[in-house]
């Protein structure tokens, strides 16, 4: 890895000057501030959720709660209907992730490893769809989904997200790095198009597939606009929607301990998936060369 290469080189030049020490100190201070900033909203969420009830009239800004208790969690769970919301959110996100992989893997394989006429044009069209803001498709999709009677259903929450052009792009970028000689050898051994995908391309692309799956799950779990339009009845509200509903239901005097508990609960699934996947994420992003090529 590059990282270890660099550290070896710098150890070979032990320039321990006062300037070096200052810059190392500054670097760590900067990192500490950055990490603190990244954690602050999560910390504030946690510390308010486990603290005593608070509202706009009585707020505390001490970094530690005056009294630790977990009463706000069952209250939030009940008030926001988080049980069904989490079930809907996780179910819908898994379905979307599965559909996106099922549509993206074969397409990326065809675009990255096979040669056919019109490939470049098709790839360009797929890339171009990345530029279409979700808001422009939201209105006609809402009309379509309502017309086929899927408004206010879980299927209606899933279907419009069945393909993910960014996922196709990421996977294709990864798959073009598979040596053509390997694919040629597979063909010589009598492996057909489909079995080459299953036996060679799929196992080699695991890091990129993991990356795409993680982002699919994160983005669909956190999606707000589409459920806001489609999930009209509270019974199929997704977690972000359930939280937003709780905010508007509590009017001018929300109990922040309860809201924070709800916010924390709906943050846990994505946090969990993210921590599980983060090691692979970096590998997946780096391997696709997106950082360099865009």
């Amino acid at each position: 890895m590059n990282a270890s290469g660099v550290s070896v080189v710098s150890r070979a030049h032990p320039a321990i000057s006062p300037g070096r020490i200052v810059s190392t100190g500054l670097r760590w201070a900067f990192l500490a501030v950055g990490i603190g900033g990244a954690f602050l909203p999560f910390w504030w969420m946690l510390r308010t959720a486990v603290g005593p009830p608070q509202n706009v009239l009585g707020l505390s800004s001490s970094p530690l709660p005056s009294d630790v208790g977990f009463a706000a969690f069952p209250r939030a769970f009940e008030a926001a209907g988080l049980g069904p919301a989490l079930a809907t959110g996780i179910g819908v996100s898994i379905a979307i992730t599965f559909l996106q992989l099922a549509t993206a893997i074969p397409a990326a394989y065809a675009l990255g490893c096979l040669r056919f006429r019109g490939r470049a044009v098709l790839f360009a069209v797929i890339l171009a769809t990345l530029l279409v803001p979700p808001q422009i498709t939201a209105i006609p999709n809402y009309v379509t989904i309502s017309a086929v009677g899927l408004a206010d259903t879980r299927a209606g929450l899933v279907l419009p997200f069945m393909t993910n052009a960014a996922g196709i792009f990421l996977l294709r970028q990864y798959m073009i790095t598979i040596p053509p000689a390997l694919l040629e050898a597979a063909r010589m051994d009598g492996l057909g198009t489909w079995r080459t995908l299953r036996a060679i391309v799929l196992p080699l692309s695991t890091p990129a597939i993991a990356t795409v799956a993680t982002f699919s799950f994160l983005l669909s779990f956190n999606e707000y606009l589409w459920p806001l339009l489609v999930a009209r009845s509270p019974g199929i509200a997704t977690p972000p929607l359930a939280l937003a509903n709780l905010v508007s239901a509590s009017g001018g005097f929300p109990d922040f301990a309860q809201l924070s508990a709800a916010a924390l609960i709906i943050s846990l699934p994505t946090l969990f998936v993210f921590i599980l996947a983060q090691r692979r994420l970096a590998a997946g992003i780096t391997g696709t060369g997106v950082g360099a090529e865009g």
Binding site: A38, M45, N222, P240, V247, L259, A262, A263, S267, L281
Partner: peptide, 20 residues
């Protein structure tokens, strides 16, 4: 991991925290 966290954050949840 620490610096990646905000990417995974639910914006509605974070917005709630920022509101108070």
């Amino acid at each position: 991991l620490a610096l990646f966290l905000p990417v995974s954050a639910n914006l509605v949840a974070v917005a709630v925290v920022f509101s108070y």
